[in-house]
Amino acid sequence: MSTAVTEDQIEKVVVESLESFGADPGQISREATLEQLDIDSLDLAELSQIVQERFDVELKGSDVAEVKTVDDAIKLIATSV
């Protein structure tokens, strides 16, 4: 468990990643659903890789499948760090 990683840092990485996947920056908010942002399972697989590299965190496939909103993603990563 790393104490150096804040939720703000996680949010920044998640938002940057979603934007790189093509999500409209203007539409991204904590409450936004992945569906609204046109984020699919392939994007989440990429996000998992980015998160692994940045925070040394392994996200379980079954947990990732439960992620429906941007907030869900940030919370999942935060609890795994």
């Binding site: 392939l42 990429e46 890789q49 590299e53």
Partner: peptide, 10 residues
């Protein structure tokens, strides 16, 4: 290998 993109095959 962990860094190979999930998009590589498609």
């Amino acid at each position: 290998p962990e860094r190979v993109s999930p998009l590589a095959v498609p």
